[in-house]
Design a protein around this nucleic acid. Structure first.
Length: 478
RNA sequence: CGGGGUGUAGCGCAGUUGGUAGCGCACCGCGUUUGGGACGCGGGGGUCCGCGGUUCAAGUCCGCGCACCCCGACCA
């Protein structure tokens, strides 16, 4: 319950973040280090994220399935880069039913291996392709440092795994799903993202190419908000995923995988939140509207509540909640629902009853400026418009903030300065050494090489001065 | 794994030279309140992180653990 002011974002951003998560009732710390409980309010947000993504997966021809949590250890040894990438963060089960296991079992950190194994059993012919399966699951990665939602030992996500007959198809799929993520982020979460390709260093262990959507948080740090991997034939060869083509020749499949996790909740918090707390985009908010009744005595109360009944009949199409707790003052409720990020608050008291109106308060515009009295005539339409406006305004504000904090770096000195508080876009020769040096000296990592067609040409590597054909973003990241 | 910090009521904290564990908020009851975080009165709630030691006596002193948070190295 919220009784004191939040730490402000400028005072201590990470403190602000933790307080928002806990006090907005999104999540709580679990008894195991690095683990969290997603509380009902946080889970409701996740369910809305799931709904929007799942809809898009289905529209693009995917189906859901569920693969097991436990994976034989040997599976992880079949793809060389995959082992090396994941070995340090695996949780291993060695005892079952009181007996030492013959082969230890890995708690999945991701499911390429076990799904690859199954695909090799299922896929025989080109007629079986493509296989387009997604699963909603939890995974475990033994991280050193954890943060609520952003990095926990266990997290929830979806992972899509597809197999195709040709490299082209698999590449198309990889980019199609990247587009799906970007569309979701921008149009549902109002989180502006940049699509791009990861550097060799930053790509997924076992992938040929990794693509990501990158979002800028309120402190200008970057957050990788979703990833899509083109796996080529790496996993097909490791797991023997083969099919007979039209010419009766045995071929390895081409596979992809792509994922978006509960980390995205962190992206929403840090993209839109302000010093009052969370601000949720209307399209994903568990409650789009909260009604706070106002009255001085029982007589007023019954008049107001009766009026609210009428108002509610116009709210059927929205996710709304009536806060009729009698033991709390309206002022307290205002603050609490602001902390929890509800996009629109309806204040309804005797004055409104008299005027046949309600007082609407926009979460994205603090204080009096965001309040507007609306007559209840066609209230549903007015509210729908308001919610749309809020959704759009959140996206605009976030986009503007991001664009203001991305700068082109002509020199390394400039880059160093830019990444102190923003993203630097720069020419990069493509060498891992330059990347590593920059990271070492500035703590900024490469985020992605933007897909944007406009950005073509040649320049000099911002670090070594060599001929460069790639532009890439550098920034500190979560 | 390095550096820093913190463990006392649900949360935030105080607890002096060692001497019967307290405050604020939250919670429960009653009443008055209610358009931007209400107030009064009454009440319930403790393995003082754990183990060992010193002492007549330990929340307090000593030793060893453990956990969590923050900052780094590593990562969705």
């Amino acid at each position: 319950m919220a009784e004191d002011k939040l730490t402000s974002r400028s005072e201590n951003y990470s403190d602000w973040y933790n307080q928002v998560v806990l006090r907005a009732d999104l999540a709580d710390y679990a008894p195991v280090r690095g683990c969290m409980v997603v509380k009902p309010y946080g889970w409701a947000l996740w369910e809305n994220i799931q709904r929007e993504l799942d809809l898009r997966f289905k529209e693009t021809g995917h189906v859901n399935a569920a693969f097991p949590l436990l994976i034989p250890k040997s599976f992880f040894e079949k793809e060389k880069e995959h082992v090396e990438g994941f070995a340090p963060e695996l949780a291993v089960v060695t005892i079952g039913g009181g007996e030492e296991l013959e082969e230890p079992l890995i708690i999945r950190p991701t499911s390429e291996t076990i799904i690859g194994y199954m695909y090799s059993k299922w896929i025989k012919s080109y007629r079986d392709l493509p296989v387009l399966i997604n699963q909603w699951a939890n995974v475990v990665r033994w991280e050193m440092r954890t943060r609520l939602f952003l990095r926990t030992l266990e997290f929830y996500w979806q992972e899509g795994h597809t197999a195709h007959a040709t490299a082209e198809e698999a590449q198309e799929e990889t980019l199609r799903m990247l587009d799906v993520y970007a569309d979701f982020a921008i149009n549902e979460a109002a989180v502006p993202v940049i699509k791009g390709r990861k550097s060799e260093t930053e790509k997924f262990a076992g992938a040929i190419n990794t693509y990501s959507i990158e979002a800028m948080m309120g402190d200008t740090k970057a957050l990788q908000a979703g990833t899509s991997h083109y796996l080529g034939q790496n996993f097909a060869k490791a797991f023997d995923i083969k099919y007979l083509d039209r010419n009766n020749t045995l071929q390895y499949c081409w596979t992809t995988s792509w994922g978006l996790s509960t980390r995205f909740i962190g992206a929403i918090i840090m993209t839109h939140g302000d010093d009052q707390g969370l601000i949720l985009p209307p399209r994903l908010a568990p409650y789009q509207i909260v009604i706070v009744p106002i009255y001085k005595n029982d007589q007023e109360r019954s008049v107001v509540m009766e009026y609210i009944e009428k108002v509610q009949s116009q709210l059927k199409g929205f996710r709304y909640r009536l806060d009729d707790r009698s033991e709390l003052t309206p002022g307290f409720k205002f603050n609490e629902w602001e902390l929890k990020g509800v996009p629109l608050r309806l204040e309804i008291g005797p004055k409104d009853v008299e005027k046949h109106a309600i007082m609407a308060a926009r979460r994205d515009i603090p204080g009096k400026a965001g309040k507007i009295s609306l007559s209840i005539e066609n209230l549903d339409l007015k509210i729908e418009n308001l919610l749309n406006e809020i959704q759009q305004s959140l996206l605009e504000k976030a986009t503007e903030f991001r664009d203001q904090n991305i700068h082109f770096a002509d020199s390394y000195d400039e880059l160093k300065q830019i990444v102190e508080n923003g993203w630097a876009e720069a020419w990069w020769c493509g060498s891992a050494e330059c990347e590593a040096k920059i990271k070492e000296e500035t703590k900024a990592t490469t985020r992605c090489m933007p897909m944007d067609e406009k950005i073509r040409g040649k320049g000099k590597c911002v670090y070594c001065g060599a001929e460069a054909e790639k532009r890439i973003y550098f920034s500190k990241a979560y």
